[in-house]
Amino acid sequence: MEKGLREQADRMQILDLVARYCRGCDRRDFALVRALYHDDAIDDHGAMFSGGPDAFVAWLPKAMEPWELTIHAISNSVIVLAGDRAEGEHLVRAWHRTHPPERQEFIVHGRYLDRYERRGGVWKFLHRQLVFDHGEVRKVDEEAMARLGAEARHGRADRDDPSWGLTLLAGLSGAT
């Protein structure tokens, strides 16, 4: 029973790690993203980028520049544990919207193939690989955006996003 509870706790910690990565990218909290990788980790985004975590975080602002907003949504996660090491496969739908005036949506359907390691009791990425499975590009329906979002708060890719008003959530940031 104790082993089963430990494995469930490990899985939940790894899923939280993956969710924090998405938040860090989408809210442009690159200090948070950096905190999720071991110093000797590798991030492999194919021809776009492959290298260590410091270089990855240095590359992210330029990579995110064309996008007014992004949403990284994870589904169908599989995690295999082996002591202080684990591997995971997570389906990702990474939605990117360009800046006005003629906004477009670029939607990547893919997977993150991850290797994790627990060091000092903390799970972090040891290797993260993005696998592209499918993609879509379409124009933003500006009329629908105006009609559906007329009375709602709008999401942002910076610290003006409403989520930064939640003290505990904002406290996830790796920045001081």
Results as ranks from 00 to 15, higher is better:
127 H>P: 03
136 E>M: 12
82 A>M: 01
50 S>W: 03
91 L>V: 11
135 G>C: 10
53 P>L: 09
61 P>G: 11
56 F>C: 11
91 L>M: 14
137 V>Q: 14
58 A>S: 15
109 H>W: 13
146 A>C: 03
140 V>R: 10
135 G>P: 00
72 H>V: 00
131 V>S: 12
59 W>N: 15
94 A>D: 09
64 M>Y: 05
83 G>V: 06
49 F>K: 00
61 P>S: 06
127 H>D: 11
59 W>K: 15
69 L>P: 04
46 G>I: 05
141 D>T: 10
107 I>G: 00
92 V>Q: 02
108 V>P: 02
73 A>G: 06
93 R>T: 13
118 R>M: 15
114 D>L: 05
136 E>Y: 10
82 A>Q: 10
76 N>E: 03
118 R>N: 14
47 A>N: 03
132 F>T: 13
80 V>S: 03
73 A>W: 04
100 P>G: 08
138 R>E: 11
57 V>F: 13
133 D>W: 09
98 T>S: 15
81 L>Q: 04
84 D>C: 06
86 A>K: 04
82 A>L: 02
51 G>W: 08
44 D>L: 06
93 R>M: 10
95 W>D: 04
94 A>W: 14
144 A>W: 09
147 R>K: 12
108 V>E: 01
121 G>D: 12
88 G>V: 01
128 R>I: 11
57 V>H: 13
67 W>N: 02
105 E>K: 00
127 H>K: 05
99 H>L: 07
47 A>V: 05
76 N>W: 04
73 A>C: 06
45 H>P: 04
77 S>D: 01
99 H>W: 14
101 P>A: 00
128 R>A: 09
89 E>H: 04
112 Y>N: 08
107 I>W: 02
83 G>L: 09
123 W>E: 07
140 V>S: 14
86 A>N: 01
43 D>G: 00
72 H>K: 07
47 A>P: 04
57 V>R: 10
110 G>L: 08
89 E>W: 01
66 P>S: 01
138 R>K: 15
96 H>S: 02
122 V>S: 12
124 K>E: 14
48 M>C: 04
111 R>Y: 10
134 H>T: 11
67 W>G: 01
102 E>F: 05
75 S>M: 04
95 W>T: 14
73 A>S: 09
121 G>T: 13
72 H>C: 02
136 E>P: 01
143 E>Y: 12
106 F>S: 08
106 F>G: 07
143 E>C: 07
115 R>I: 03
58 A>D: 15
109 H>S: 11
108 V>K: 01
46 G>N: 04
70 T>C: 02
113 L>E: 14
71 I>P: 04
117 E>I: 11
59 W>Q: 14
77 S>E: 04
45 H>K: 04
98 T>K: 04
45 H>A: 06
116 Y>M: 03
56 F>V: 09
116 Y>N: 03
56 F>D: 05
93 R>F: 02
59 W>L: 09
65 E>N: 02
137 V>D: 14
108 V>H: 06
137 V>A: 15
148 L>N: 10
121 G>L: 06
51 G>D: 08
48 M>Q: 09
116 Y>W: 05
106 F>V: 11
134 H>P: 00
77 S>V: 07
66 P>E: 00
91 L>P: 03
114 D>E: 06
132 F>I: 15
123 W>A: 06
127 H>F: 11
95 W>M: 07
